[in-house]
Design a protein around this nucleic acid. Structure first.
Length: 171
DNA sequence: AGCAAGATCGGT
DNA sequence: CCGATCTTGCTG
């Protein structure tokens, strides 16, 4: 047993458990036969149709349908016409949730890291349990973190914009 | 068919 | 603070 790839069971937990648990784990990308690993340093949780900041708050659409699948798939979308956002679907089927990968070691900012790793629309729906080009490996590093409100969601209203579902690794 | 709104970022 | 940039989803 040499692989420490996180299984789909890990991603099928609630997003509020998965988002902090991803801190200190390694995001692995296979690019041109090269295995690149980056420590995950910052995440954000988006949870269910009630969460007004979550893309699923307006129901299932062409863009967000993967969020309604069982946890363990990649959800990628374009914001502001320029930046790809990398998310992992979590939780149960028909309970739309996802974790936004907001920072990795060396690259803070969700748009910067996808540019660095060359992540785009073609990663949509990739299965983290079996994919040959993207997955997450346990690192054994610490998961100490602080929480803060999520970024860029002022439209979500007083309650949802202030909920502290942003998780930042502290070492 | 048209249009407004983004889970951002870098430069003033 | 402001503009870049373009897909999506809603409206009519």
């Amino acid at each position: 047993m040499s692989s420490s790839r996180l299984t789909s069971a890990f991603f099928q937990q609630d997003v509020l458990d998965v988002a902090p648990a991803l801190l200190g784990q390694n995001l692995v990308i296979l690019s041109n036969g090269l295995k690149l690993t980056y420590l995950i340093t910052e995440t954000e949780a988006y949870r269910g149709e009630d969460d007004l900041a979550c893309h699923a708050s307006k129901g299932k659409t062409e863009r967000n349908h993967i969020m309604y699948a069982l946890g363990g798939y990649v959800y990628v979308y374009l914001v502001y016409g320029m930046y790809w956002m990398l998310n992992f679907v979590t939780g149960n089927e028909n309970d739309p949730q996802a974790v936004l990968i907001r920072g990795i070691e060396g690259f803070n900012g969700p748009g910067k890291l996808t540019k660095q790793l060359d992540i785009n629309k073609t990663f949509y729906g990739e299965d983290l349990a079996v994919s040959e080009r993207i997955w997450v490996e346990a690192s054994g590093k610490s998961e100490r973190f602080i929480t803060a409100p999520r970024v860029g969601i002022d439209y979500a209203g007083d309650y949802w914009k202030n909920v502290k579902w942003r998780f930042i690794r502290t070492d």
